[in-house]
Design a protein around this nucleic acid. Structure first.
Length: 603
RNA sequence: GGGCCCGUAGCUCAAUGGACAGAGCAACUGCCUUCUAAGCAGUGGGUUGGAGGUUCGAUUCCUCUCGGGCCCGCCA
């Protein structure tokens, strides 16, 4: 409907230009929208006002010229008005409504990757939590936003893959391994190994500073892992995932045997080398945590196409630094290797290789992004947690310095989430291991409510997540309001079926029966769906979906109370309204699908 | 000191540079012998933090300013 109007408007502009009244090299973007007031028509456009800038002619004059040249005016419009500054207001003919509704019934929303509009491949990286523990609520927010954005891309015909980056190297994994080892020693009551000292609940190497040991992981979730190391895992996890990622040097047949049967209290006997044992425990912990994360995400109805492990980068790190060097953006100073990111609008240069010769996290990240491009992705989109905002400028700088265009990478932050319970914020401390996990959140409010409230806020505003409201199954909760509309339609259609009233096909139904304002209002709202999806994808703002869902639900509820579908004397009217309602159901379903929220047939 | 985000109705928040700034909640008034009242219709509620600027037009873009939050390692 909107696309049709847009086309007609473009034709009018072209016709005017052909008449040589105006001279245009291209047609600028203009909007077609449904005005708030009915007196401004069913839809209106600002085309004339947008053209003013190019043509230097008063908008009113342009608008009048356009209206004169609109094709098939009598067929499509009751009337077209030009108002005040230069709005063109369309009052649509009934047949326009009916034809549009007919077309809407064949809309489909792709749910998997397709290539239609463009061959551009998008890589969407989000969540990418550290493999040191369970996912938290910010991760959950990122999961909801990233997943829906990927679906939006697919819906507009773009290929988009979801990727989760696993940071499985460096000191944090070492810390993780020592934390797990301590829990294991606690459980087995083994003697304190030689060369270790106690720090709190942890056994740490005697030469560690106390500050260093502050970074160990205190979360009790590691006790469970330690128990499994002692008693055995009943899972093919390490054969499949473990060997795939870390090879059978780490996961040798002997070690896999003990992982499955349990190490008992013999871990130190079986892997006596401290270095090897810590490395092994690190890998086991990573695989274990990553799989727990996968499980929650799956519960959240989200599956990533790729899980990319940092340790798989290998040579890529030095290769990408070489590339930067070749491009002339690298220098040495104070015994370290630096990237001149200030040449690309970063506020200071960044170290790539430390004095001690090891690459920084940033250098690894550059290699990772280079590798994303190497794998054939045209556009990289990253969602970062709020604490990473310093990385936006430097990462964009790096991608450009590697020789890629600036618009090949987009980085967005997902802001903090504060959980409110009883109107009060829940404080969380990650280091002490006291935080609400994603799993606990889903236990508490459910998947639909979680997804809804994560999507409804713009991604870069702080989110106050009101647990009480999210759980409330009443009118105060827009989620249920929306789902209720869907359930109502389903119930209505079921009743119709029970009465032997069959839904007619688009070419069999007589839509000219639809004359009521409420019917037209519903058609107009439904018509906005494609352009809304397109806008949300373009702006990378999934938050437009829940709002649209509420609006569509409201328009439907309003229609439902004003217009009866069943039990009206005219069977043709029932058929037409049933058709209308069935198309509305499809669109409502598609909207909820994009959000990953269930559309219940009964409530 | 530098950077990022946010300031809109009593509360929580909308508004791809467009018309009289909109919803929900809360408050008040009506509507169920017929398809789900988890619903509908209506009333009240605003100097969009403030001051300039760009524009035919600014909540939106730019500059300054006030208030709140977050970040600023050769950690990851």
């Amino acid at each position: 409907m909107i696309e049709r109007l847009r086309k007609l408007t473009v034709e009018a502009i072209a016709a005017v230009c052909k008449n040589k009244e105006f001279n245009l090299d291209f047609i600028p973007e203009f909007s077609i929208e449904q005005p708030k007031e009915d007196e401004y028509g069913d839809f209106s456009t600002n085309a004339a006002m947008v053209l003013t800038k190019k043509l230097k002619i008063q908008p009113i004059l342009i608008a009048n010229a356009l209206v004169d040249h609109f094709p098939d005016k009598e067929k499509f419009f009751k009337k077209i008005e030009v108002v005040k500054p230069g709005f063109i207001n369309f009052f649509l003919s009934d047949s326009f409504f009916h034809e549009s509704l007919q077309k809407m019934s064949s809309w489909t929303i792709p749910s998997s990757s397709v290539e239609k509009n463009s061959s551009e491949k998008i890589l969407l990286e989000f969540v990418s939590a550290n493999p040191t523990g369970p996912l938290n609520v910010v991760n959950a927010r990122a999961a909801a936003v990233g997943d829906t954005l990927a679906k939006l891309f697919n819906a507009v015909g773009l290929r988009a893959d979801r990727e989760f980056y696993v940071n499985d190297e460096g000191t944090q994994i070492e810390h993780l391994a020592y934390s797990v080892q301590s829990r294991y020693l606690q459980l087995t009551g083994s003697e304190i190994p030689q060369g270790y000292k106690m720090h709190g609940i942890f056994w740490i190497p005697a030469d560690w500073s106390l500050e260093k040991s502050e970074d160990l992981y205190q979360g009790e979730y590691l006790i469970e892992l330690a128990e499994k190391i002692r008693d055995g895992f009943r899972t093919p996890l390490f054969r499949d995932e473990g060997i795939r990622v870390y090879g059978n040097e780490i996961f040798s047949p002997e070690r896999i045997h003990f992982l499955e049967a349990g190490f008992g209290n013999k871990l130190f006997e079986i892997i006596p080398s401290e270095k090897e044992r810590i490395k092994f425990l690190g890998c086991v912990s990573v695989i274990y945590n990553v799989n727990l994360q996968k499980e929650v995400l799956k519960r959240f109805r989200l599956e990533f196409q790729n899980w990319f492990f940092q340790s798989q980068l290998g040579e890529k790190v030095s290769q990408s630094i070489e590339q930067l060097k070749k491009n002339g953006h690298v220098y040495e100073q104070d015994g370290a290797v630096w990237f001149r990111s200030t040449a690309f609008q970063d506020d200071k240069d960044r170290v790539l290789i430390r004095q001690d010769g090891t690459p920084t996290y940033f250098a690894v990240d550059i290699a990772y992004h280079a590798y994303k491009k190497e794998r054939g992705y045209d556009k990289l989109i990253d969602f970062l947690g709020p604490d990473h905002h310093g990385y936006i400028a430097r990462t964009k700088a790096a991608v450009q310095a590697l020789g890629f265009p600036p618009d090949s990478i987009e980085i967005y932050l997902i802001q903090l989430v504060t959980l409110l319970s009883g109107g009060k914020p829940l404080r969380m401390s990650k280091r002490a291991g006291e935080f609400i996990t994603m799993n606990e959140l889903l236990d508490d409010v459910g998947i639909d409510a979680a997804r809804w409230y994560f999507l409804v806020r713009h991604r870069d505003t702080h989110l106050d997540f009101d647990l009480d409201l999210a759980k409330l199954q009443s009118e105060e909760n827009p989620l249920y309001y929306t789902q209720y509309a869907y359930a109502r339609i389903c119930s209505l259609m079921q009743t119709a079926e029970g009465e032997g009233i069959k839904l007619l096909s688009a070419d069999a139904v007589d839509l000219s029966q639809l004359q009521h304002q409420a019917e037209k209002g519903l058609i107009k709202k439904m018509a906005q769906f494609p352009s809304l999806v397109e806008m949300a994808a373009d702006l990378r703002e999934p938050n437009h979906l829940p709002r649209y869902a509420v609006e569509l639900a409201r328009t439907f509820h309003s229609f439902y109370t004003e217009c009866r579908v069943l039990g009206v004397p005219d069977r043709k009217l029932t058929d037409a309204r049933l058709f209308l309602v069935s198309v509305c159901r499809q669109i409502l379903k598609s909207t909820l699908d994009l959000m990953g929220i269930e559309a219940p047939e009964k409530m």
